[in-house]
Design a protein around this nucleic acid. Structure first.
Length: 306
DNA sequence: GTGCCCCCGCCAGTTACGTCA
DNA sequence: GATGACGTAACTGGCGGGGGC
């Protein structure tokens, strides 16, 4: 499938994953304000998650500020016990919307009515009766799909950019504004989050693939270098006059290893990853060579202090 | 304090419908 | 008009968290 704008404003266009790009591509939700609505960033992938799975943090709590009070939830739950049934199953709602039925027969033949699902259904009063033409009987009409209008989709998108989750009040308000049912708004947000996550996964995969390629190249280069050095082992004079082609350096603070080379693209070999807060690792002011060239380093540089 | 139950929101996976080439 | 691919609305089942008892 050809790469195209999917309406999410997402693409798989990744540059070389150097630190800058990593930073730019995976901005921290906390540190980075929502980007301007350009084509590429209209709906930022990292709206609610870290760049890669191994850096992913639990995000569902990010919307805790919007979570309803228990009073609201219980009130809604109580009232929902007596509410109607979703438009898509009204045609088969041959059972009474009786609290006792709902509770005691959670696994009735009408699976859509089971348990919390039925209780969750909301007939928001003023919302559209989307199955108005329905009632045409038969299970074939059980699910009727609605295509959201462009205006509705646009409002939902705008709202999603502000919060990727909604509390019940926000959901109800939005549903009322769009003349939809709250359940539809809820479903839209769930699907939207899923789409965002899927896209982010694709981006992550692409990023990791490029990292793998770069490391493979670097490994190949180093193997070649080893071979060359071994070949030169018998000519120490040449060896001594040779400038070090590659230096493995280690941060004395965190003992991370980085590769720098005067002859290679050092950025491609960096092993630093962006941190979860979007900042890169602290600067390595005094890299400590780790390879054979490290012989020139005074011994005290390697003290660990313990 | 703890355990149980209920309710809720969310997610992953799936189904089914609408659209388009 | 039939068909397959694709996007997406809607559904299902499970899980974890919060609150009440």
């Amino acid at each position: 499938m050809a790469e195209k704008d999917d309406g999410l404003g997402l693409s798989l266009s990744l540059g070389c994953p150097d630190n800058n790009q990593i930073q730019n591509h995976h901005p921290s939700p906390a540190a980075t304000p929502p980007p301007p609505p350009t084509a590429a960033t209209r709906f930022p992938l990292n709206f609610f998650r870290s760049p890669l799975p191994f850096m992913q943090q639990h995000v569902s709590s990010s919307s805790d500020a919007f979570h309803p009070s228990s009073t609201d939830r219980n009130a809604e739950a109580r009232s929902s016990l007596f509410r109607g049934i979703d438009m898509n199953i009204r045609a088969v709602s041959v059972i009474d919307c009786d609290e006792e039925v709902m509770v005691s027969s959670p696994n009735s033949t009408v699976s859509s009515l089971s348990g919390k699902r039925s209780e969750r259904e909301d007939n928001d009063g003023e919302s559209l009766d989307l199955d108005d033409d329905g009632g045409d009987g038969g299970d074939a009409a059980a699910r009727k799909k609605l295509r959201l209008s462009k205006e509705q989709a646009a409002v939902l998108e705008e709202t999603f950019k502000e919060h990727n989750t909604l509390n019940p009040k926000q959901k109800m308000a939005l549903a009322k504004q769009l003349n939809l049912r709250a359940r539809q708004v809820e479903v839209w947000f769930q699907n939207r989050r899923a789409r965002t996550k899927l896209k982010q996964t694709e981006v992550d995969c692409e990023y990791l693939r490029r990292c793998c390629e770069n490391l493979t190249d670097e490994n190949r280069r180093l193997q070649k270098e080893v071979t060359e050095l071994r070949a030169l082992k018998l000519s120490p004079q040449f060896y001594m006059n040779m400038s070090p082609p590659t230096t493995l350096t280690m941060c004395p603070q965190c003992e991370r290893v980085a590769v720098s080379s005067s002859s290679s693209s050092a950025a491609s070999a960096s092993l630093d990853r962006p941190t979860t807060n979007g900042s890169t690792h602290h600067h390595h002011h005094r890299p400590v060579p780790m390879n054979s060239w490290a012989a020139v380093i005074p011994p005290h540089h390697h003290r660990t202090g313990s």
